[in-house]
Design a protein around this nucleic acid. Structure first.
Lengths: 107, 107
DNA sequence: GTTTTCGTCAACCAGACGGTTGAATATGCC
DNA sequence: GGCATATTCAACCGTCTGGTTGACGAAAAC
């Protein structure tokens, strides 16, 4: 069993981390800016980012005293392929998908 | 944030549980038969199955003294849709998928 | 060169996880 | 009825998780 899948799925299992990924979909962000909308300490967000980073879902690059976080969507590829085995999903319903994304961002 | 996604991704984060799902892809199975190939107690497998069940990834139906486990691939649908947001994946590489499945079965 | 800002580290906490063992509960068989 | 089979329950254990706070180091600002 691919242990990288363990890390990716475990990283995705937390709503805070999924929200962070959604934010990074817009643009790269500094750690402090990532933390801003959440009602938890900077240290907690820093840990979440470390978990996302270990899973390969984001990369972090320090420029000056600011650490920039960048989405790395390729890491989701293996996980996505794995899931195809079970779904035999028909092509994704794009309307439902748009509704879903709106819902996701609102939360 | 959709808490059902928490359960689905957390369930997928464990290699034993992903192996169980792969087995159930073949056919429905009784709990004892699910447990057979694993080097751990029946009680442990029973717990794993409960987690998969809570996540909606399988259903369990008791017939007589045997409890049958059935894959419920629809539960993966929302999770799969969520992941599409980040990948902008081109159509799944079926060759890579075949190789992956072979690798999966060998383990 | 002092002070502020950015981010991590360390220690701690409560709770969940993944496993064990042993007892308990059904159901089926003779 | 009495025994074997299938599965879960209960208690326990060590480890990981998700959060806190406070101290710390490095870069920037003034």
């Amino acid at each position: 069993m691919d242990p990288r899948l363990d890390l990716v799925f475990a990283a995705l299992a937390d709503p805070t981390r999924r929200a962070i990924l959604t934010m990074l979909l817009e643009d790269d962000m500094a750690v402090t800016d990532v933390a801003e909308p959440f009602a938890m300490s900077l240290a907690a967000i820093s840990k979440h980012l470390a978990i996302l980073s270990r899973a390969g879902l984001i990369s972090q690059e320090k420029r000056g005293r600011v650490k920039w976080c960048k989405l790395e969507p390729e890491a989701l590829r293996d996980a996505s392929i794995w899931m195809q085995a079970f779904g035999q999903f028909e092509a994704v319903d794009l309307d439902a998908f748009e509704r879903f994304l709106e819902h996701e961002i609102r939360e």
